[in-house]
Computed example of a mutant assay.
Amino acid sequence: MRVMVLVKATKDSEAGLMPSAELLEAMGRFNEDLIKAGIMRAGEGLRPSSQGKRVAFDGAGRTVTDGPFPETRELVAGFWLWEVRDMAEAVEWVRRCPNPMPGPSEIEIRPLYEMADFAEPPQR
């Protein structure tokens, strides 16, 4: 099962504050553990939304909006792509993760659709 593990943004990450050397070191060790376990497929931090853009679609129309974007709690500051046995294993790994931010933070785990998911008729 593949999952996207989303590190939610905070006021600090949106302000562009870089993690401390201690946090970078702890996250580096955690990432090495993920790699050794064969879990991690990809992982990156994202720059603040002030450096991003959003494109809104409405039929054939497109509207581009410059960042920063409101509602910091709904923004993503970084991600991993993991291959795990099941959601329980993903949760076990996230519980081992160092707090990715200096203060309170949140990580969301979302399973990816696989091609096999599209072979069955949609359920309503």
Rank of each mutant, 00 (worst) to 15 (best):
G61M: 07
G61Y: 07
G61K: 15
R62L: 12
R62T: 10
R62D: 04
R62Q: 12
T63F: 09
V64N: 09
D66F: 00
D66A: 08
D66S: 06
G67N: 04
G67Y: 07
G67P: 03
G67S: 10
P68L: 10
P68A: 09
F69Y: 07
F69K: 06
F69H: 03
P70G: 02
E71Y: 08
E71S: 11
T72D: 04
T72I: 15
T72H: 04
T72E: 03
R73M: 09
R73F: 10
R73A: 13
R73G: 05
E74M: 11
E74T: 07
E74I: 08
L75Q: 07
L75W: 00
L75S: 00
L75V: 00
V76T: 07
V76R: 01
V76F: 01
V76Q: 01
V76W: 06
A77C: 07
A77V: 03
A77D: 03
A77S: 11
G78S: 08
G78V: 01
G78T: 01
G78W: 04
G78F: 02
G78Y: 02
G78A: 08
F79W: 11
F79E: 05
F79D: 04
F79K: 07
F79H: 10
F79Q: 04
F79T: 04
W80I: 00
W80S: 01
W80L: 04
W80F: 12
W80N: 00
W80D: 02
L81P: 05
W82E: 02
W82I: 09
W82H: 08
W82R: 07
W82A: 04
E83Y: 10
E83M: 09
E83Q: 15
V84K: 08
V84C: 14
V84D: 04
V84L: 08
R85T: 12
R85K: 15
D86Y: 04
D86S: 05
D86K: 03
M87P: 07
M87G: 10
M87F: 13
A88Y: 05
A88G: 12
A88V: 10
A88L: 09
E89M: 13
E89N: 14
A90V: 02
A90E: 00
A90D: 01
V91L: 10
V91S: 03
E92W: 12
W93D: 00
W93V: 01
W93L: 03
V94K: 13
V94N: 12
V94S: 12
R95I: 09
R95E: 11
R96F: 08
R96D: 05
R96M: 06
C97N: 14
C97G: 11
P98H: 14
P98K: 13
P98S: 12
P98G: 11
N99L: 13
N99V: 15
N99Y: 12
P100K: 08
P100N: 12
M101R: 15
M101Y: 11
M101K: 14
P102W: 11
G103F: 00
G103W: 06
P104L: 11
P104Y: 12
P104H: 13
S105I: 05
S105V: 08
S105A: 14
E106P: 06
E106A: 13
E106K: 15
E106Y: 10
I107M: 14
I107L: 10
I107D: 04
I107F: 06
E108A: 13
E108Y: 12
I109P: 04
I109S: 02
P111Q: 04
P111T: 07
P111L: 07
P111K: 05
L112I: 06
L112N: 03
